[in-house]
Measured scan of single mutants.
Amino acid sequence: NQASVVANQLIPINTALTLAMMRSEVVTPVGIPAEDIPRLVSMQVNRAVPLGTTLMPDMVKGYA
């Protein structure tokens, strides 16, 4: 099963992502692949992401 990127904390809108904000977890539906975590660092979210939410490509500016 593919691990996805999950929010490790509440991430406010327009926040630049850091490693501490993300974790890898096997979830359904599948979100951004966990191997993309290094690429996500310093990218901004375009909405508030609650703790435990799977990051989807449309939630991260410049990812999709």
Rank of each mutant, 00 (worst) to 15 (best):
T28A: 10
D58W: 08
I11H: 00
P38W: 09
M21H: 04
Q2V: 08
A3V: 09
T18H: 08
M22T: 03
R39N: 07
A3S: 13
V45D: 02
M22P: 00
T54V: 09
S4Y: 07
A20Y: 15
D58S: 12
S24Q: 09
R39Y: 14
L55T: 00
P33D: 08
S42Y: 11
T53M: 09
G52S: 11
A16G: 14
I13D: 13
V26H: 05
V41T: 11
L55H: 00
V6K: 04
L51E: 11
Q9S: 13
V30F: 12
K61Y: 14
M43A: 06
M22H: 00
M56R: 09
V5K: 00
V41A: 08
Q44K: 08
A34V: 12
L51F: 13
A7C: 03
I37E: 03
N14V: 03
P29I: 10
V30Q: 09
E35T: 13
K61V: 12
Q2A: 11
A16P: 14
M56D: 07
R39F: 12
M21I: 05
E35A: 12
L40S: 00
M43C: 04
S4K: 02
A64C: 09
L51A: 10
I11C: 03
P57M: 09
I11T: 02
P38N: 15
A16N: 12
N1A: 15
S42I: 03
M21K: 05
T18N: 10
V60G: 01
V6F: 02
E25M: 04
G52A: 11
Y63T: 04
G62F: 14
A7H: 01
V60Q: 00
A20S: 15
T53L: 08
R39K: 15
T18R: 08
V6W: 00
L19Q: 11
P33G: 12
V6N: 01
L55P: 01
T15C: 03
N46F: 10
A20K: 06
I37H: 03
M43H: 11
I11M: 06
V45Q: 01
I32T: 02
T15F: 07
V60S: 01
A16W: 10
V5A: 14
R23S: 14
G52V: 01
L55Q: 01
I32C: 03
I37P: 01
M59I: 07
A16C: 12
M21F: 09
Y63W: 12
L40H: 00
N46G: 10
V27M: 08
V26P: 09
A48N: 12
P57H: 08
A64L: 12
K61Q: 07
N8F: 09
N14G: 07
P33M: 10
V41L: 13
D36F: 08
A20M: 08
L17E: 02
V30T: 09
T53A: 07
M21S: 14
Q9A: 14
E25G: 05
V6Q: 05
Q9G: 04
V26L: 06
G52D: 09
L19F: 13
T15W: 11
N14S: 05
D58K: 04
M22Q: 01
N8E: 13
N1T: 15
T53R: 06
I11K: 00
L51P: 11
P38G: 15
K61P: 12
L40E: 01
M56T: 12
P29L: 06
T15D: 12
G52K: 05
G31H: 01
A7W: 00
P50S: 13
T15Y: 11
P33F: 08
A20V: 14
I32E: 00
R23N: 12
V6G: 01
I11G: 01
S42H: 12
A64F: 03
P57T: 12
P33E: 05
V5Q: 01
Q9M: 12
V49S: 02
E35C: 15
R23W: 05
N8C: 03
V30L: 10
V27K: 12
P50F: 13
A20D: 10
V45R: 00
D58G: 08
Q9L: 15
P38C: 10
P12Q: 15
G31K: 01
T28I: 04
A64N: 14
I32P: 00
G62S: 09
N14A: 06
A7S: 09
T53K: 05
L19G: 12
V5E: 00
V49Y: 02
A34D: 14
P50H: 14
R39E: 04
A3T: 10
L10M: 14
P57F: 06
A16V: 15
G62Y: 12
G52F: 07
N14E: 14
M43D: 04
L10V: 11
Q2P: 15
M56S: 13
A64S: 15
L19R: 07
R47L: 12
Y63K: 03
P33L: 07
L17A: 00
Q9I: 14
Q2W: 08
E25A: 05
V30C: 03
P12G: 15
L17F: 03
Q44M: 11
D36R: 04
I32Y: 02
K61G: 08
P12W: 06
Y63P: 06
P38F: 05
M56F: 11
E35V: 04
S42A: 12
T54Q: 04
L51D: 13
P12N: 13
D58I: 11
V5T: 09
A48F: 05
K61F: 07
R23K: 04
D58E: 12
N14L: 10
V41S: 07
V49D: 01
A3M: 10
V49E: 01
P57A: 12
